[in-house]
Design a binder for these strands. Structure first.
Lengths: 328, 328
DNA sequence: TAATGGTTTGTAAGTGCTTACATTTGTGTA
DNA sequence: TACACAAATGTAAGCACTTACAAACCATTA
């Protein structure tokens, strides 16, 4: 069943059928009706590949992220997919895992599939890595990074002002005489770099030297955080507040410290479902994911219309105070 | 840049280039090398649409789910996508939202895009709805349902024995003289139906009549659950244990009851990250999502090789006991 | 009535690949 | 050296659509 069958059965040429299929205005209403009738009756659907060949696009957009299993990314993927869907585009999802090799492959795959654009969710690529493959891909197709940054032509970034948010937070804690703030993080993404920069900014405001022993990498799961906290205490590393680069890290610390009987302000990041589910409820910095997505998708729309767009947009991040902030 | 260019530059015909591209054994090693050299030098990648046209497949699989934002589905999507990727297939993701109309459209879209298979995650379609569109789609392409069931030719289902798990749970609670078990659920999916059936089974074991006032629908967010619990108590509906059809429902109940000062066994479903993040940690029935995915994907592989596979597989679900179970 | 110009339709040439079949090349044997 | 046969390569016909351009149609207007 192809366009020739439909053309024959409705007594027109394939060009006319194609026009009907593509909502061309140059078809007489009566003709259009007749063709549509046959299409309905035969249950015909045009072949997507042939269409892609002819039009040079299958109206698909690639989404890359390190893992959809992470609720934060899942949230973003959900946003992005939904927006695309509403705009008649569809999403090819490809998760990458953490290695550069996988990321490279994923990007290559997407360009091979002739997607109309690529959205990178989360800072899966870092400014300081070798990004020649991104540069190459960006020449073929617009690339949008949500919550990450790489300064390359053809690459459009939307980030959150996490640096300022952390700086403000540190300032607030300092004012409460919490001067030994433990900062837990996992992979050193762009976003993470910004947070640490904010931490240092905050300390600098008060001319306090930064104790690097308080900036601690740890795997993003409760057990790892628990072990980490215990180890720090055994090692005699003292602290009087905790900031986690992800809610799960902060939550792990909160659980661990409560078990030990210690009480102090604890702040997470991303304001995920987890934050409200915790007991006591977790204070968290909301990096405005939804807003970032909206802006990113706006940029994408602009680019798809072949217009120019701003290469880097920053949205504000803000503290959402809950019980865990007020502890002493 | 197309296959003709490569053919010309390497002094062979397009057929030979195509053979090199498709790893055909009928190419002399020296010729293959020469062609590959040109391909590398020119940075050529074959056009995916043209390939799809010729081969009748772009090696893509559709994933449908109601929402990736839900961590449970995100988990499943992650599994499925990863498996595909390892097998050289890629995923088109499409979320549907709850309405039948959207689900229908999503299915139609997928068949139009000529995917090699469709995976439905979660019981987004119910046995008792009008499933003619699924039947139609299943004639064109294999459909796999993970954690849902529809008895139709061409539709392959993998479910979890949630019915038995709930029945066992009810039995265990009854033995502890908890006979008024509140069951909270949201959308009435196949999975949810099974859970309720298990609830009834358990009551039947003890010849206890089921009080339908204890089977309560509620939106899946903390506030809604909190309101619901308070409303029930005000209405004088008494209960001495809570089972949530999702962890978030159980967790909402737990928080609500703790606030009020009530203490009772609380059990959730899916054994999500949430369960371990709760305080006290939430007991949860693990429906073996990972195992379901693995089996489903095995079935899919079998089908893609044009072999026959079992139409319905059931994996066991099991209770993961944590603190919230032992309360009184 | 014929010329004009706009609308509708058709023809045919892409789009870039796969693959059946024909042809050429190469190898080993008599 | 000629022959048979297999391996390597090429030719050309798909695959199902889009679209530039040409042709036909129709309603005005002079």
């Amino acid at each position: 069943m192809n366009i020739y069958d439909i053309a024959e059965k409705s007594g027109v040429s394939i060009a006319t059928v194609s026009r009907v299929l593509n909502d061309s205005p140059n078809v007489r209403a009566a003709t259009r009706e007749r063709v549509l009738e046959v299409i309905r009756a035969e249950g015909y659907t045009p072949n997507a590949f042939a269409r892609g060949l002819g039009l040079g696009s299958m109206r698909m957009v690639g989404i890359l992220c390190t893992s959809v299993r992470d609720p934060f990314y899942a949230q973003a993927v959900g946003h992005v997919e939904e927006h695309f869907r509403r705009n008649g585009l569809n999403a090819i999802l490809r998760c990458t895992g953490p290695t550069t090799e996988e990321k490279k492959q994923a990007l290559e795959y997407m360009t091979q599939k002739n997607v109309d654009a690529i959205v990178l969710i989360g800072s899966i690529f870092c400014e300081d890595e070798d990004n020649s493959h991104i540069a190459a891909a960006a020449q073929q197709v617009p690339i949008i990074i949500i919550n990450g940054h790489i300064d390359l032509p053809g690459v459009y970034c939307v980030t959150s002002d996490e640096r300022k948010a952390v700086c403000d937070l540190v300032e607030a804690l300092f004012r409460r005489h919490k001067k030994r703030i433990l900062f837990l993080h996992d992979i050193m993404t762009y976003s993470c770099q910004q947070k640490i920069a904010g931490y240092r900014d905050g300390c600098a405001l008060f001319d306090e030297p930064v104790d690097d022993a308080l900036i601690v990498p740890v795997e993003r799961n409760l057990d790892a955080v628990n072990d980490c906290i215990k180890r720090l205490l055994v090692q005699g590393v003292s602290f009087d507040a905790v900031v986690g680069a992800e809610d799960i890290l902060a939550l792990g610390a909160q659980k661990s410290l409560h078990r030990i009987g210690l009480n102090m302000p604890i702040i997470g990041f991303n304001n995920s479902t987890l934050a409200r589910c915790a007991t006591p409820e977790l204070t968290s910095i909301d990096n405005g994911l939804e807003q970032m997505c909206t802006i990113a998708l706006g940029v994408l729309d602009t680019l798809l219309e072949k217009k120019e767009a701003s290469r880097h947009t920053v949205v504000p991040a803000k503290l959402v105070e809950r019980d865990s902030f007020r502890a002493n």
